[in-house]
Design a protein around this nucleic acid. Sequence first.
DNA 1: AGCGGGACCTGTGGGC
DNA 2: TGCCCACAGGTCCCGC
Length: 279
Amino acid sequence: MPELPEAETVAKTLAPHIRCCVFESAELLRPDALHELSLPLSALSGAVCNGVSRRGKLIIAGLDWPEKPAGIVPSAIIFHLRMTGRLFMGEKAQGKHIRCLFHLRKPDGKPDTLFFDDTRTFGKILVATPEILDRWQFWKELGPEPLEIGPEAFAKRLKGARPVKTALMDQKVIAGIGNIYADESLYYAGISPLREAGSLTDAEAERLLKSLREVLLRSIACRGSSIRDYRDADGNEGGFQKSFAVYGRGGKKCRSCGGTLERMRLGGRATVFCPTCQN
DNA sequence: AGCGGGACCTGTGGGC
DNA sequence: TGCCCACAGGTCCCGC
């Protein structure tokens, strides 16, 4: 799933469920769901969730400590859902791919459980301190947020001989863009995914950033895209998949020129574009 | 240095 | 109906 709009939607829908809840205990059903840099889940006991945010495709549950215990105290739990990770609440385990359970105590004293479910097991949980984040290369190198960066800074980051689509999907260049939103934004910007990243003019880079923002914001408004696995924290599908212009539409008609959309592989990923409208 | 390809997993859908 | 293969929203690692 989870590119930026899906991570944003999960963060938004998860927050009201877990904000102000106490983490009492956790069960790790699949050990490799825990990131190699993570503190053990036992370090969470007594933490209170102070909110849920997002950075790129990462979902971040912030932690407060009403009574600080001795020892190392985590400041956040970071979830990377990768392809098929899901976060949702429930009374008891549901589904056969639950990787981790977090037992919570709500402000009213009632129990609740946060589930981390992940069919393909690529997803990761990181119980982190600021020092751990400082050692996490992926985090340190994560590029700027596409909804915050300005056009000049964005243009400067698009460089090199590699295809512009590959650059867009590089989390070091810009955070949160995956296969869907790379293809969609390049289509709306009228730029071929094969163009050398460094060959874009300032005007083209600005157009690409504008398209990227518009696509991301439209998708966020639809609560993300559900191709197959993705659901928000309430179990609801997104709706933006109904609006795809090119993703998954190889061989179909371009909605702008009526020509046939071309499908190819680029950097190992399925890529769809209009050879007439994008150059 | 930077690229392409494969690996990591499980499930699904299409073609035969 | 059933089998096999290709493919799936993301990163990481290796060799060239």
